[in-house]
Amino acid sequence: QTVFSVSSWVPPTHTLSVAQKNWCDALEKESSGRMKCNILPKGVAAAPGTFDAVRDGLADISYTVDGYTPGRFINTQVAEFPFLGDSAVPTSVAYQHIYTKYFAPLGEHRGVKVLGVFTHGPGIIFNSKQPVKTVDDATKLKFRIGGGNINELSKLMGFNTTLKPAPDSFELLSTGVMDGTFFPDESVASFKLNMIKHATTFPGGLYNTSFVFMMNPAKYNALSAQDKAVVDKLSGEFAARLFGEGWDKVDAASRELQKQQGVARVQADESFIKAVAAKQAELEDKWAAAASAKGLKDPKAVLAEFRAEIKKIK
């Protein structure tokens, strides 16, 4: 019997931990109990160190956010772009297809066995002060943000943002140090952001996040051919769909909660969306240059195929 040490850097109730546990249950069932997981009480490393932790065999299975180690992954930034999709399953599955076809051979995730890649739901602007419909509304407020494409985009848009870790959000917003934050729906519930009063949505989301679910390669290589086949079956689209469904479920639950909390939901004005698209075009040029330097052929076409794939799955 093979036992995998599984690590998670969010609480056991978080959708990422739950989806990971569901994957483990599927693994145990499909292998008739030959493989199972030992989920560790505490994550073996903070989020940014998790990739290395799996690579070095500190944990056998875990997941991480590619953007938490800036400079390391370029191709995966496509999954951080705005206007991808309105739910996590299609973007995750389409991302997985593109990843398998174009990114995996380039080996950015070298050192780990990638089980799957996925995204969360559409990124939204939340705040506790006023409705935000235009660029002007947004530039009046102070926002906490994480890293990645949205950080670059915010700079170009002239938003007043501060980079702070996501778990600081409650303190920053409840004390009024910050007026708002950029999050998927889920986070309003999971970070207990009960001070949020306004949400501004964008068709397809203002931003997204690229996740990777991975296994220590030595552990994988030591498996029997039969067990490898089970892991392979549960890798790729299966994993992407599983994590995506998890995100969609908690996003929906959080939207219900936001209704009770009295969060007013508006869509950004056409002018706002156009402004974001214009600035994003610059970033996409920059990304395309960086990605071709890393060996990706015709990045713009890959991006177009990614967007088309998302629409197709929807």
Partner: peptide, 22 residues
């Protein structure tokens, strides 16, 4: 857990604790 993971764990902990905003 093996010496390789032990080395990795120690080196991560030293770095993460030293390089921590909070």
């Amino acid at each position: 857990r093996g010496w390789q993971p032990a080395l990795a764990s120690a080196s991560q902990v030293i770095f993460e604790t030293g390089f921590a905003y909070v």
